[in-house]
């Protein structure tokens, strides 16, 4: 074999894309579960801060979080490599194409949607993750780092709070479209295609891609409206 079959080949790149993508989907659920505490408002601020503290200090979660950072990087770099190869495979473009006749919009724009998400993740981590880990944080009544106040300020009282909410919602829409295609695509790539199970996987994927980003988006919108 010219290339290592499980590292360099076209299919290997796809397997890694699928596996890291599914892992990141699981992460979204965990992240969302914590974020939903924010809907409890100031009354549950200390609970949210305790959760944030736990997520940044508990050793097992720390290991998982390093796996997560690696997955995000790997998924992004692998995606860029695949996209470069795909572009090279058609050096002369068609003059006229009718792609909507044979494929869905999300499936053709995974790289664009991924880029939007990557930019969002960089901004998102700079705003919250970096500050929580390395920055100056306010302290709540029981002496925990007060992430609740940081989030609430960002989405409600900051002068550009409306813009923060808007960008967040846009990013969630991008994640929704990315998942709309990506969820079921990951199973197909791993070879799971079955007349009985594939329709179920597709439906689960569509529900997942709408419900998860929508719940994420509801939180800053709710905070902004009820400030």
């Amino acid at each position: 074999m010219a290339k290592s079959a499980l590292l360099g080949s076209s299919l290997a790149k796809k397997y890694w894309m699928a596996l890291t993508g599914l892992f990141l989907s699981i992460f979204l659920v965990v992240h969302l579960a914590g974020n939903l505490v924010l809907l409890g408002g100031q009354a549950m601020a200390e609970d949210f801060n305790a959760y944030a503290e736990f997520m940044t200090t508990f050793p097992l979660i720390k290991i998982a979080s390093y796996l997560l950072y690696a997955s995000i990087l790997f998924h992004a770099i692998d995606g860029i490599l695949l996209t470069i190869q795909n572009r090279k495979a058609r050096p002369v473009k068609y003059h006229y194409e009718n792609p909507s006749a044979n494929s869905g919009w999300a499936s053709r724009n995974m790289a664009f949607l991924g880029t939007v998400m990557l930019l969002f993740i960089v901004g998102h981590m700079a705003t919250f993750w970096w500050r929580m880990k390395f920055g100056e944080m306010p302290i709540d009544a029981v002496g925990q780092k007060d992430l609740y106040t940081v989030v609430a300020t960002y989405f409600t009282t900051a002068s550009t709070a409306w813009l923060h909410v808007l960008l967040y919602v846009v990013a969630m829409i991008a994640i929704g479209f990315h998942l709309w295609h990506g969820f079921q695509s990951a199973f197909q790539t791993m070879g799971v295609n079955h007349p009985k199970y594939t329709p179920v996987i597709k439906k689960v994927g569509y529900v997942f891609s709408v419900v998860i980003p929508a719940l994420f988006a509801v939180i800053p919108i709710y905070m902004f409206i009820t400030q």
Partner: peptide, 16 residues
Amino acid sequence: VNQMDLEGFGNCTNTG
């Protein structure tokens, strides 16, 4: 698959 890669075809995005 190895020959397919050598020929310079692109990768599958499962667009269908």
